[in-house]
Design a protein around this nucleic acid. Sequence first.
DNA 1: CCGACCGATATGCGAGCGATATACCGCCGC
DNA 2: GCGGCGGTATATCGCTCGCATATCGGTCGG
Lengths: 226, 226
Amino acid sequence: MASASGVVALVESESARSQSEEAYLRIRERIVSLDMRPGSVVNEGRLREELQIGRTPIREALQRLTRENLVRSVPHRGTFVTDVNITDLARITEVRVVLEAHAASLAAERLSVNDRESLTMLLEVLEEGPSLDQRELMRLDQQIHRQIYRAARNSFLETTLEQYFNLSLRLWYLVLDREVGLREALREHVELLEAILAGNVARADESMRRHVTGFEREIRKVLVER
Amino acid sequence: MASASGVVALVESESARSQSEEAYLRIRERIVSLDMRPGSVVNEGRLREELQIGRTPIREALQRLTRENLVRSVPHRGTFVTDVNITDLARITEVRVVLEAHAASLAAERLSVNDRESLTMLLEVLEEGPSLDQRELMRLDQQIHRQIYRAARNSFLETTLEQYFNLSLRLWYLVLDREVGLREALREHVELLEAILAGNVARADESMRRHVTGFEREIRKVLVER
DNA sequence: CCGACCGATATGCGAGCGATATACCGCCGC
DNA sequence: GCGGCGGTATATCGCTCGCATATCGGTCGG
């Protein structure tokens, strides 16, 4: 018995505890990575057979995604993946700028030994940045942001930022194939991490503001010409 | 049939569309107003009979409240109203300060004619502030904040702030009977509204920061001596 | 006195039923 | 013959209900 559950835990180690959580994470991944395209309909029955998960967990996952603005549900008409538009991009960025900057400030202020170590490692990876392709770059960006959220030591801030980050991440996926000028984000990241590691609160705040607004500018460029 | 549903719609006009929503709002109200005390167990069956609502809607409401940190659910042990402590107060305030201030800035920047009118009305009510008791004061504070959220014209920011506001509101209820020095919040409000109405972004930002941190200071005073 | 079993309790999940809103189609009026 | 309208059909959803499962506390046996 114990060994069986041990194996299960091992197999599903990454994904989930409850089926609800599992469904949520997998559907979210699909939406963020554009595997389910913006504006397309979400077919509950189809998800059920594809994920091999019952109706209740799927339903709960969709409700959660609705609250996070990744899907939109119209009572007896259907559920749709949220569309992408420039207005939302601007609104999301508006919030992200102040929250991310604040997180960076707090991280600079409260940096623990462990967090310092993690950020230092990320900085080292950044140094060899030019050898990375867009997907690796994106993955690295994720790690950096999430590590900063953790380092800010505020669980409320962390979960809120996680939500907004996923919304932004989908936008990045949208422009992934057009060689968009997000490589200069590398320099921004270096500056940002150095500021945090130096405990320079004001500069960390400032750097993160530039980074997030720069991100928006680049995404917007590609988005307007669609 | 049509008339019956019409009557129902009339009776429940304010509260809900779906039973899920109804359950959510009513349970949230109970928690925020301390009718369900922090740390107490949430009995699903009891809620079911008290609210005359089925199991699924209650369950969905509780999940939503879990996401908003108003209840905490431990897998097969029970669901509890989230406890209150000074650390959380500090963390919540940390986020609120930057978000509320940003909302105030945006409101000052984007104020529409209608919003201007609403805020002007609230300002007039404020002028006769001293005649208000604590509960009315609290209600007025709610209206002011929510109106500012709306005036900021950013739906993402609005929903996020709504969540944090409810968390804070519960803390206010906690100290409601001790005549706590939140009356000076009146002056802060006046200054805040005037700044927004004048379109003074920097001052709106500044005023809101003072207001939220002042709020925290007062709550904290009462909280530490418990 | 300690450990293991067992019942109580509460949640997680699945399937079906009734309600509802839309879409389509046929009919009526112009 | 064409356009507007009402009725029916269908798909989806919200909710109820019941079973499976996991954890805890108490008790019995060693």
